[in-house]
Design a protein around this nucleic acid. Sequence first.
DNA 1: GTGAAAGCGCTAACAG
DNA 2: CTGTTAGCGCTTTCAC
Lengths: 335, 335
Amino acid sequence: MVEKRGGRTTLVDVAQAAGVSRALVSIVMRGAPGASDETRDRVLRIADEMGYVPDQRARKLRQSSSRLLGVTFELREPFHGDLVEEIYRAAAEAGYDVVISAVAPSRSESNAVDTVLRERCEAAILLGPRFDDIELSTIVERLPVVVVARAGDDPRAGYVRSDDSAGIGLAVDHLVELGHTAIVHIDGGDAPGAHERRSGFRAAMSRRGFGAGPRVVPGGLGQIDGARAMDAVLEGGDPPTAVIAFNDDCATGVIDTIIRAGKTVPEDISVVGYDDARLASGLRVPLTTVSQDARQMADDAVIGVLSMIDGGDPPAIVGRPRLVIRGTTATRPTA
Amino acid sequence: MVEKRGGRTTLVDVAQAAGVSRALVSIVMRGAPGASDETRDRVLRIADEMGYVPDQRARKLRQSSSRLLGVTFELREPFHGDLVEEIYRAAAEAGYDVVISAVAPSRSESNAVDTVLRERCEAAILLGPRFDDIELSTIVERLPVVVVARAGDDPRAGYVRSDDSAGIGLAVDHLVELGHTAIVHIDGGDAPGAHERRSGFRAAMSRRGFGAGPRVVPGGLGQIDGARAMDAVLEGGDPPTAVIAFNDDCATGVIDTIIRAGKTVPEDISVVGYDDARLASGLRVPLTTVSQDARQMADDAVIGVLSMIDGGDPPAIVGRPRLVIRGTTATRPTA
DNA sequence: GTGAAAGCGCTAACAG
DNA sequence: CTGTTAGCGCTTTCAC
């Protein structure tokens, strides 16, 4: 009785098979009021037997509001994965569907955003976009946008991020309290958030009295970037006793280099990461890291963007990151 | 002149503004023949000024075929990221759009597949699905399906995978040629492909004359799984001189444990991974690994599923994996 | 509870 | 080259 290669089964087919009107089937499929429990069960059963699945496109087309949220994210960013997962949940709780659109080396951000636009999403959540002001501007003109995990100041866009500057501050404080003075920051280049972390590092260091040119080393987002940067640091002589990496991946590379160089973490050198993507919590060396709460950020982004749809003001939420102390930091070696 | 909060601009609006018929605008937007270059330019300009973006849903709804491919993937699998990226490319080359639907701990596979169904995708590509035969069966009845990176034998589904058994064989051969005899396989439990790799390992070992119970240790997909498994191996005494891990992440964990135990890779113990996801190539310790060619697999999957749409037979493609020798394998320690 | 009718934004098949 | 006419599959009035 199963309709082969279904999906093509339409509401009319079900109505005919059940001997009722299309409207009734529609009501039943939506779970809307207006049908007896008896009819409801029968229609549902028949629809199921026929392999009927409502056509999302037709449905959304007909509805005045699409109740659709577009999300762009980077396929390579573990933390984006965490955020996407939480956004699915948060959106579902609000009765919204989600269209995800990936960004990758071979698929540009504009490409990803175009998809969101063409699908007639009511609003977009952009995860760590690298758009410049102009590009962002053209998007913001078209639909409500919340930018996550990146700073910015377009008044028409909402922003949800955690305070990168404060986050790095937590890391610096932690290390200073452990007695470290020779602290290096391996940065994220031009990645979203990198600037804030860099200046947050400088600020925290000078606040702690290490004003004289705290060391910032060019790094990047990947493990290899962290490893290379740490290579350079060690080769330069005068090794630090602590390193704050741009993110967890980067920190992993840093740790790797340190170990390869015959030193140990955290005995010789302490290392702090950033993000606390699940990747990190699964690491063998439990990484001390600055945690951005994906769940909270997703909630904030979704709630914020929904309020914008209703004409509310763009949110400007700066979450307070949390330092998660695990096993890669220790008191300064007494050497 | 920009329509604020556009996206709501419709084809009719553009037609009116340009003083032409809807049909003409449609023709121009699709780049279809039937309009003078002059008109084309003018309409395009006006559309752009108005911030008009064609409604994908309405478009797909009207067209008999949606030219849409659904892809389900795991947010946490780096190799899936590689595949998704390549599928976007391969689909675009064939004139198809892609709907991606993520699987995560809090978002089930059925959920992901439902999305694909509701969007009226013409076919689905499932990356490493964990469905059992029954579940897969109900999906296969509804639309053409190609399963990637997992073995199976539903004759109605297409399969694109690389020969896991042969891949592990390559790893075993490589290690045996380096003089290793004490080789351990840390497996992937019930993950897609794990069974094949396990039995491939046993087969290759016995082919090489190590028939007497080659050691297979329960592992998993993550770094932590590899690390824990390796812990157990080392604690058990009689350490192997070589380890073949289920995947690259797992291998990373293995390496980590080895180093923490005061041994070195590859001097004391050689380690081979599996997948060659970009993650791996970015590792500081260049991982010797069995490469599954994401680009090739994506091409095969897309071409295969398109042919199924045209009534072709389901593809059954078993790619030949390639051993990529990097820095984590060496000749057996002469100890 | 039910059925008829209109229309979401677009494309396709025609006549002009 | 242009305009008209039909729908795609669904939801949403509105009478019955």
